[in-house]
Design a protein around this nucleic acid. Structure first.
Length: 822
RNA sequence: GCCCGGAUGGCGGAACGGUAGACGCGAAGGUCUCAAACACCUUUGUCCGAAAGGGCGUGCGGGUUCGAGUCCCGCUCCGGGCACCA
């Protein structure tokens, strides 16, 4: 290992200085143009892991780079400190979750400091801080008033072993609980929801305006799942002859003439009315069986189709052709999407086709198949057939005409449906933000008055192994009075999903001291949208969708600035760190602790490794070779150190060593480096920026060893240090101060280059014959096409290849390329 | 099944349609040293060749172009997301 300087001492000293001098603290009235850099605030699980290091290296680099560019940079951080692990630790070890969490936060903060990441620590936010709980609850109440929070009964994942509801993410692929291993069942409970679906259209449309990775936008679009179509009524008779309207949703009203049956979800409220006496036993048996199935079973494509549906005994009328069609129930129709009922068109839908085959139902094609079609259901485009007044139209025209007809007849209309569901925020957990609601026997769910906020969970609770929320048994917390009538009432004991906390923390950072409102809209308007948001791809859907929803809702409520439609203007998602093909994580036990590198090669070397190993967006494979690459990074920094400290001496170079270049060439190379590296920073190509610096360092060594004049070397080294400063902040700060006493490199402006002086004087001209390289020659960079052709033809190698032939075409791209075509 | 990515030396990776393999790791040789470590220098896609030089090379098959790792068409494999969404 290279040890040119005391890495530990230097890094510790600069970290202390940045903290003590408040180098990266910024005021809200800072006169410099504002720039907001934010990394997704971490869940505090203890000392940083490699994923954190990678994330915060990119973040810190941006903070320092933008600062050098002259911005007043807001660089805040906080901790997403509510969550399950702390509660599990409490159950297992008997520590209060807050104590446990605060200890983990202290560890993570220490890691971040040792990494050299700089923040305005005065703005630190923690989800579990009563001041933060206060405003999370306050926001909940505003959303409730606006009708954006509501209560309803919903099927949730219930783990019988843990006696609690689980989030979807906590249910494993085989339908069991990740903690107890019990089979998770569906249970109907009354839960709180946020009406995110009200913003479905905006959440979809506004994606276009964002500078985000395309794949994240695609994931969000798919998640929202907008589909356009029509909704209309089918009339059916119940067994007594009474008329019943069944509402169906379809994206293909053009195929309505091909409807040969109707399917309802087993939970559909009309099922009892539509079931005939003769079919009652079969229907009851089917509905009962489906209700005990888990989502996993129900949504599997396996299983006999003929056991997955049942005939109700009733018929409905297809309004298009007045035909009677049978009404079935099937588990593949979901109550939660559309109307919970569909018209089945087996000719143009594969699931309907399969079901029709299994139940021997007729299939009528309504779209002309292309020549040679031998598939089953046909979903492509084509001319409409078998459809009376729609015949001969294209699919698109037929959709329009059929909906117009439904509207004219008054039986249906145009309708847009979304896959997106409302956000279930209730959690039967202790370690989360309490939902500020009181249940009164007379007044029902009553909001806690603003003046009584925050509602904070008591400390004297007992955590018991089943994992049930102890709040339910804490009489002091549970028993209260109704804010409206003063009679005895009980508190809501559920807490909020931790995604609620992370949906507005970036707003709080702009004004974390505010005690009147969550934040001053003017402060939010000054800093937001976040100029550069950085985080893992795993948050591509939920966190980013929820935060976008909160921002829009709060803006509409006047809590946030009304013109703020999006929280994160530019997003970068970094790759994962993998080991043996799977993600590096605590649960897999394949963590590599950053601390061991901080204590040996140092933070700068580890940062440099992360920047150099490959494109930031790509995954990193951690292998046996990785330590050697990290050592290589440390070796490089030691090389820079010796260079900058004047410890590299002019030497008698071996004959074989290439001369470094003519006088003035080092200045030129320096201007070129500034140009190149600045460009790489702008496009997040840090791996090539590092490579360029390394290449330049190699060149500089040659110059110094060859005795190139001092002034050029000084300019070259200073420029190199400035370009490296955001990447390896400690060593560059130390070297700069030693070279320029009293100056601070991180307060220097970003270096600029002179276009004239960066321009190359000579170029390597490649001569091709029929596209194959035959010769290369050094030429004046201002060479013209004619001269290029003349020189190319003068080449002996080229003449040998031409073998007497005359080029019939000459392509020139001055000054780098000539292609002779024969 | 549908929707995104990706495939380049022994390895990580570079390459506005214009010198494929920058930079680093590893490997080989050398200088320094009593020796080692460190450091410094050189070489390093592959095949033929003593060399000069030449052939072949960016997952596979076609195409466009003076010229293709890059663009187009058709595949293969790998990774990710969504998955009875009507």
């Amino acid at each position: 290992m290279a040890e040119a300087y005391d890495v530990q001492e230097v890094e510790r000293r600069w970290q202390a200085r940045w903290r003590d001098e408040g180098t990266y603290e910024v005021e809200n009235d800072d006169p410099r143009p504002p720039f907001y850099v934010l990394c997704m605030y971490p869940y505090p699980s203890g000392p940083a892991h490699m994923g954190h290091v990678r994330n915060y290296t990119f973040g810190d680099l941006n903070v320092r780079y933008r600062t050098m560019q002259g911005h007043g940079v807001l660089s805040p951080i906080g901790f997403d400190s509510f969550g399950l692990p702390a509660e599990n630790a409490a159950i297992k070890q008997g520590v209060h979750p807050r104590e446990f969490t605060d200890a983990r936060i202290a560890e993570l903060k220490a890691s971040l400091t040792r990494l050299g990441a700089v923040y305005d620590w005065r703005r630190e936010v923690r989800s579990h801080d009563p001041a933060y709980i206060h405003w999370t609850q306050w926001i909940f109440l505003r959303l409730l008033e606006a009708g954006l929070a509501y209560r309803k009964q919903a099927p949730v994942n219930w783990c019988p072993g843990c006696q609690t509801v689980l989030a979807n993410e906590q249910v494993l692929a085989d339908g069991t609980c990740e903690r107890s291993g019990d089979l998770v069942v569906k249970r109907d409970l009354v839960q709180w929801f946020f009406r995110i679906t009200q913003y479905a259209d905006q959440l979809l449309d506004d994606l276009d305006s964002l500078d985000w990775p395309e794949r994240v936008k695609v994931m969000q679009r798919n998640w929202i799942g907008r589909s356009e179509g029509a909704e209309f009524d089918l009339m059916a008779g119940d067994p007594s002859g009474k008329e019943i309207a069944i509402r169906v949703f379809t994206t293909r009203p053009d195929t309505s003439f091909g409807m040969t049956y109707v399917v309802l979800a087993p939970e559909h409220p009309l099922v009892p009315d539509l079931t005939t006496a003769g079919q009652r036993a079969a229907v009851d048996e089917f509905v009962a069986r489906v209700s005990t199935e888990s989502d996993i079973e129900r949504q599997s494509t396996e299983g006999m189709l003929d056991k997955r549906g049942v005939f109700t005994g009733s018929y409905a009328t297809n309004p298009f052709n007045r035909q009677q069609v049978p009404i079935y129930l099937a588990d593949y129709v979901l109550m939660g999407y559309g109307t919970g009922a569909i018209m089945a068109v087996p000719g143009e839908d594969q699931r309907d086709w399969d079901f029709a085959q299994a139940y021997d139902l007729p299939i009528i094609p309504t779209v002309q198949r292309p020549e040679g079609w031998d598939g089953e259901a046909y979903t492509g485009d084509g001319v409409i057939i078998n459809s009376q007044w729609l015949n001969g139209l294209t699919k698109a025209d037929a959709i329009v005409k059929s909906i117009d007809w439904l509207e004219a007849e008054g039986i249906g209309e145009r309708k847009v449906n979304y896959r997106l569901r409302d956000w279930l925020l209730s959690r039967q957990r202790f370690w989360g933000c309490p939902i500020p609601i009181v249940y009164c026997p007379d007044h029902g769910a009553v909001p806690v008055p603003d003046a009584d906020l925050p509602i904070v969970a008591p400390d004297d609770v007992e955590f018991r192994p089943p994992g049930e929320s102890p709040l339910q048994y804490h009489q002091g917390f549970l028993q209260t009075v109704c804010p409206r009538c003063g009679k005895p009432a009980t508190r809501e004991t559920d807490t909020m999903d931790t995604f609620v906390d992370s949906s507005w923390y970036f707003l709080r950072f702009t004004d974390p001291w505010n005690t009147e409102v969550p934040f001053d809209p003017a402060m939010a308007a000054h800093w937001l949208p976040v100029d550069q948001y950085i985080g893992g791809i795993e948050h591509a859907i939920l966190h980013l969708m929820y935060a976008r929803f909160f921002t829009k809702a709060l803006a509409d409520l006047g809590v946030a600035p009304p013109e703020l439609r999006e929280p994160f203007g530019r997003l970068f998602t970094q790759g994962m760190i993998r080991m043996d093909g799977s993600k590096m994580s605590k649960s897999k036990g394949n963590l590599v602790a950053p601390e061991q590198y901080f204590s040996t090669v140092g933070a700068d070397a580890l940062r440099l490794f992360h920047l150099f190993v490959g494109p930031p967006a790509d995954d990193v494979d951690w292998t046996e070779e990785t330590d050697k690459v990290i050592d290589g990074a440390a070796r490089y920094l030691a090389r820079v150190w010796r260079l900058a400290m004047g410890e590299v001496e002019a030497v008698e170079m071996p004959e074989a060593t290439a001369p470094p270049g003519p006088p003035g060439s080092l200045e030129r190379a320096t201007h070129q480096l500034i140009s190149r590296v600045s460009d790489d920073y702008a496009r997040w190509s840090y791996n090539t920026a590092v490579a360029a610096c390394m290449e330049f360092t190699n060149l500089l060594y040659k110059h110094v060893q060859a005795g190139t004049e001092r002034a050029s070397v000084k300019f070259a080294v200073d420029s190199l240090l400035l370009l490296l400063a955001p990447m390896v902040p400690h060593v560059t700060a130390e070297l700069w101060e030693r070279r320029h006493p009293g100056e601070h490199i991180h307060q220097r402006p970003w270096p600029t280059f002179d276009v004239e002086r960066a321009a190359a004087l000579t170029a390597t001209m490649v001569v091709q014959v029929n596209g194959k390289v035959r010769d290369r020659m050094e030429v004046d960079a201002r060479i013209g096409p004619d001269e290029m052709e003349r020189m190319a033809l003068a080449s002996a190698k080229v003449q040998a290849t031409l073998d007497g032939r005359t080029p019939r075409k000459v392509v020139t791209r001055p000054p780098k390329l000539v292609n002779l075509v024969v």
